[in-house]
C-alpha cells in the first residue's frame, strides 16, 4: 500500500503533498501540547514497536498468516494526534531508509494511512469505545482504518491513470476487505491483551475535537469510494475529467503565464509545464510549512 514514486500523476502527488504538510504540522503541535515534551521518546519507541510488530505473524489458517499495520492500535493507545505523528514518522523512515514508498508520494501515503486511515479507525472507538459495543467498535476501527487507506491508495492510482481492468479492481477490493477483517481482529486481540496487562495503556475515548476529526475521516471514506467509482467509470482517469470540466486548460494557462515571463515559455515543451507544476507544488509545501510554523510561533509568543 506504500505508493512508490513514479505511479502518481503530478497533479495528484503535488496536491496531496500540499494537503498533507499543514495537517502533519497541526498534528505535531497538537501532540506536543497533549503530551509533555518528555514524551518524544515514547512516540519514537512506539514507532519502532509498530515496525517490530510487523514481524509477528498471526495464523489465519490454510497456511497463510497476516500481520498488524497498526494505525487504529496507535490511535487507541496514544490518542489520534500522537498516532498521526508516529505513523508519519514511520512512513518517512520507510521511504528514506527502506525505499518503501516514494518521497514525492509521501504526502499521498501520509494522507492515506497516517491521517485519513488513522482517523477512520478512531471514529468508531470515539463513538462507541466506552459502551456496550466496545469490542465491536475496536474491531470496526481496525477494519475501517485499513480499508480506508487501501481504497484511498487505489483511487489515487486510478486518478493518475494507472490502468486497472474491472476484474483486477474487484480482486484487489476483495483482498483489501480480507486484510481489513484481519487488521480488525488483530487490533482487537492486542487491545484485549493490553487491557489485561495494564488498562492505563488505553486512552479513554474522547468526544471533543477528535470526534469531529473522525467525521472528517468518514467523509474522506465516501470521497475515496466516490473517487474509485468515478475513476473506474472513466478509465483514462483525471485527464478526461479535467478536460470535461475545463480545469486542465485553465491550469495550463495559469502555469504558462509565470514561466513565460522568464523566457522559458519559448521552449514550448510539455515537460517545462509539468516540472513547473511539480516545483510549484514543492514550493507551496515549503511555504505552507514555514508560514504555518511562523504564525503559530507568533501566536504562542503573544
Amino acid at each position: 500500500m506504500h505508493i512508490p514514486d513514479g505511479f502518481l500523476a503530478t497533479p495528484v502527488w503535488a496536491t496531496l503533498d500540499v494537503t498533507a504538510a499543514p495537517v502533519v504540522g497541526y498534528l505535531a503541535r497538537r501532540a506536543q501540547r497533549g503530551l509533555e515534551q518528555s514524551k518524544v521518546p515514547l512516540l519514537g519507541v512506539m514507532g519502532a514497536f509498530v515496525f517490530a510488530a510487523q514481524m509477528i505473524n498471526f495464523p489465519v489458517g490454510m497456511g497463510t498468516s497476516g500481520h498488524l499495520v497498526g494505525a487504529a492500535l496507535l490511535a487507541y493507545t496514544l490518542g489520534p494526534a500522537a498516532a498521526g505523528v508516529v505513523l508519519t514518522a514511520i512512513l518517512a523512515v520507510q521511504a528514506l531508509v527502506f525505499q518503501d514508498g516514494g518521497i514525492l508520494a509521501l504526502g499521498a501515503n501520509v494522507i492515506n494511512m497516517a491521517i485519513v486511515g488513522m482517523l477512520a479507525g478512531y471514529l468508531p472507538y470515539s463513538l462507541w469505545g466506552a459502551g456496550r459495543w466496545r469490542r465491536q467498535a475496536i474491531f470496526l476501527g481496525g477494519f475501517l482504518s485499513l480499508l480506508t487507506s487501501a481504497v484511498l491508495a487505489l483511487s489515487e492510482l486510478l486518478l493518475s491513470g494507472v490502468a486497472m481492468p474491472a476484474a483486477v479492481l474487484r480482486i484487489s477490493l476483495g483482498l483489501f476487505v480480507i486484510s481489513a477483517v484481519l487488521e480488525g481482529a488483530i487490533t482487537l486481540a492486542i487491545i484485549q491483551a493490553l487491557a489485561s496487562i495494564n488498562p492505563d495503556f488505553l486512552r479513554q475515548p474522547r468526544s471533543d475535537g477528535a470526534r469531529t476529526l473522525g467525521w472528517i475521516g468518514v467523509a474522506a471514506i465516501f470521497l475515496a469510494v466516490a473517487g474509485v467509482a468515478i475513476a473506474s467509470a472513466y478509465p483514462d482517469g483525471i485527464q478526461k475529467l479535467a478536460d470535461a470540466t475545463g480545469i486542465s486548460s485553465q491550469a495550463k494557462t495559469l502555469l504558462r503565464t509565470p514561466l513565460a515571463d522568464y523566457q522559458l515559455g519559448t521552449m514550448h515543451s510539455v515537460w517545462v509545464r509539468k516540472a513547473g507544476a511539480g516545483l510549484a507544488g514543492l514550493s507551496l509545501i515549503y511555504g505552507a510549512l514555514l508560514l504555518g510554523g511562523k504564525l503559530l510561533a507568533r501566536k504562542r509568543g503573544a
Partner: peptide, 23 residues
C-alpha cells in the same frame, strides 16, 4: 533547517534509534 517540524523529526530519530532494540 529546511522547515520540517522538529517534533516530527525527533520522533523519527528515536524511532530509527530503537528500531534495532525493539526488533
Amino acid at each position: 533547517r529546511m522547515g520540517v517540524p522538529r517534533y516530527l523529526l525527533m520522533v523519527a530519530q528515536f524511532l530509527y534509534r530503537y528500531l534495532f532494540v525493539i526488533s
